[in-house]
Design a protein around this nucleic acid. Structure first.
Length: 342
DNA sequence: CAAGCGTGGGA
DNA sequence: TTCCCAAGCTT
């Protein structure tokens, strides 16, 4: 990047006259800014807005979120994905309440130790809320910088991202928060992955890739590997009291979200009844199928309805199911059940 | 370091 | 249909 001061001036000038009126730009509350950054992780602005509004209404401050019931938080987060984000955020917020008097730390080295705070969120919050001269390197910034510098390195590598963060911090101006947001906004609206609008770019003169006519070749990223395909049978096990068997998902994927019992397709109904300790119909009634795509997996699900007279602690009244956090994958199957049941 | 982690939208 | 990508972090 040539002529740093001119570059900064042009970028910041463009940002001031083009920035979008996003809800989290209407506040100076570090907690609100932090919340928005957690939500924006790997999630588009348009998706985040309604969740952000809901959360600042229901959890307006550190204490209200720290005190919230985890299952209620998950329900409010339902549909946003990457559910560990909200769990980690609450862990961090409790730490702020208990160790820092419910005041978000304004010292970077303290803030960076909190759960869920990585290089991006740390830099973003500390620059926007407290004017620290730290970079906030997200996917937008990596793309913008790779083009400005005609940098052909693999942008998925942590070492490259770290290097770019340091290089930005060498030139970052006193208006660090605005500078970081300007770079991101440029990437989101002008320097886009496909069909970038170079003709509208405020820093076109500083762009090495534009000069060399290789904008379309950048950034270079290692290809994602193919997704695993998994096949499940999903069971709606109902009893005589209008209750359905639900359980909380274990493991790391969708941890804590409610799910209908699901089993590998070759698992017999007999062994399922045995595992759950209940008597079920010998054969289920097929009521439909569903597919759901995750980042690293694809689920193909077949839904079956079973009836039992047995008792089990995990039966939930049908009327209460809507109050429980459930992934989109399972909602697709649950909808089949609702259609079947009327 | 590579892999795992949700969901939705666009080309 | 398929692939990429989105204000990334944890393990």
């Amino acid at each position: 990047m040539l002529k740093i001061s001119e570059f900064n001036h042009n970028l910041l000038g463009w940002y001031q006259s083009n920035k979008r009126a996003l809800p989290w730009r209407q506040t100076r509350d570090p907690y609100h800014i932090w919340l928005s950054e957690v939500m924006l992780q790997q999630t588009q602005v348009i998706t985040v807005i309604p969740y952000y509004e809901k959360f600042i209404t229901r959890y307006p401050d550190i204490d209200s979120l720290a005190d919230a019931d985890e299952e209620t938080l998950l329900k409010d987060w339902e549909g946003l994905g990457y559910y560990n984000r909200i769990r980690n955020f609450q862990t961090a917020v409790k730490e702020v309440r208990d160790s820092y008097g419910s005041v978000v730390p304004d010292q970077p080295e303290t803030f960076f130790k909190l759960k869920g705070v990585g290089p991006y969120i740390g830099g973003a919050v500390q620059s926007i809320a407290f004017n620290h001269l730290l970079a906030a390197v997200d996917g937008n910034v990596l793309r913008v910088i790779s083009r400005l510098d005609a940098d052909g390195r693999d942008m998925t590598k942590a070492s490259v991202q770290k290097d770019i963060k340091h290089r930005i911090e060498e030139i970052i101006p006193l208006e660090a928060g605005d500078f970081n947001q300007a770079l991101m906004e440029l990437g989101a609206t002008i320097c886009t992955p496909r069909a970038p609008k170079c003709i509208m770019c405020p820093v076109q003169e500083n762009c090495e890739a534009y000069k060399e006519n290789i904008v379309a070749e950048l950034p270079v990223k290692k290809k994602a590997k193919r997704k695993n395909e998994l096949y499940y049978n999903v069971y709606f096990i109902v009893n005589d009291r209008d209750e359905v068997l639900l359980r909380r998902q274990e493991g790391t994927l969708l941890q804590g979200m409610y799910e209908l019992p699901k089993y590998d397709v070759d698992t017999s109904i007999e062994s399922i009844g045995e595992e759950l300790g209940i008597d079920v119909d010998a054969s289920g009634r097929h009521i439909g199928s569903g597919k759901h795509v995750f980042t690293h997996q694809v689920w193909y699900m077949e839904g079956y309805m079973l009836h039992t007279r047995s008792t089990h602690p995990d039966f939930v009244p049908l009327k209460e199911v809507k109050n429980l956090p459930m992934s989109k994958a399972m909602q697709k199957l649950y909808r089949l059940f609702e259609i079947e049941n009327g």
